[in-house]
Design a binder for these strands. Sequence first.
DNA 1: ATAAACCTTAGAGTTAAATCCAAGGTCAAG
DNA 2: CTTGACCTTGGATTTAACTCTAAGGTTTAT
Lengths: 149, 149
Amino acid sequence: MYRIGELATLFDVKTDTLRFYEKHGLLAPSNRSESGYRLYSNDDAEKLRFIIRAKAVGFSLSDIAELLSIELDKSNWACADVKGMVDIKLEQVQAKIAELEFFASSLSKLSDACCGGPESAEHCSILEALESSDKELQPKVEHHAAKPN
Amino acid sequence: MYRIGELATLFDVKTDTLRFYEKHGLLAPSNRSESGYRLYSNDDAEKLRFIIRAKAVGFSLSDIAELLSIELDKSNWACADVKGMVDIKLEQVQAKIAELEFFASSLSKLSDACCGGPESAEHCSILEALESSDKELQPKVEHHAAKPN
DNA sequence: ATAAACCTTAGAGTTAAATCCAAGGTCAAG
DNA sequence: CTTGACCTTGGATTTAACTCTAAGGTTTAT
Ligand SMILES: [Zn+2]
Ligand SMILES: [Zn+2]
Ligand SMILES: [Zn+2]
Ligand SMILES: [Zn+2]
């Protein structure tokens, strides 16, 4: 059983954050001490690990609450329901990955087209590409040659 | 030259958003009409396209401002500076992709382990995995068999 | 020449996710 | 038996990125 401060340092969050998660139905301590101190179990800690990981990856707290809340009334859900929910989240994550990959490739094209040298950026192909109306963000060939390959 | 409302409908944003971007140094109209109406050029529109795309992918507005601001005093930057900036953003995007891929694979493992059937989720392997302290989110083998392959 | 649909500014309100503050209770150490 | 580190609650503040409101000026169409 961890007190709030212990759990907080363990996961490098503020105690305020843990109280905030509790208030919003994400993570309630499974016990309280005589005097009212929050006491978190190992399972609570693992739940927190999940929350933090999910958050790190772009899930909103209400997404996470949804995911975790199924747990609470298991018997009112079928495997199909649970799996469906996970699959929806999975699709969202994959969509976000696709977006990011598109953008990474745009950035990468930009980067590749720039010589990266000490010359003035006056005619830098990156800046020209950003200014241009090229829908593909495809940078033009530049006045001072880009690093070949 | 587009008036604010035209540009807004063109890109499916609110006029408020465009004024907000202006106030925060992201996108100022290149002209004003006699009567003070904002007038956006095609270049302005392309800048907006970039902003929207960057935003869609998780860049903060200040990230974007940073990226765009180099454009303004080009001559004080070298290609190396510009390229460095793009590369930093690229690394951030790639880091985010990696995080998302880790999470997608966790979700995908969860999904695969669940039979997805109409049985009560009482012993659903997904829920068991979420409850468990398994660091890998690797779901246990479950009481009613998971859909094989 | 007046209504409808635009535009202007300044400033207030919203949402998510904390983060901080105040006033006070608890607990181990000296 | 007091000091200091911890905990409690409730409520206020913060930040990002809008979104809305109010009070009014402009344009276009009838
Ligand atoms: Zn160059
Ligand atoms: Zn360059
Ligand atoms: Zn099942
Ligand atoms: Zn299941």
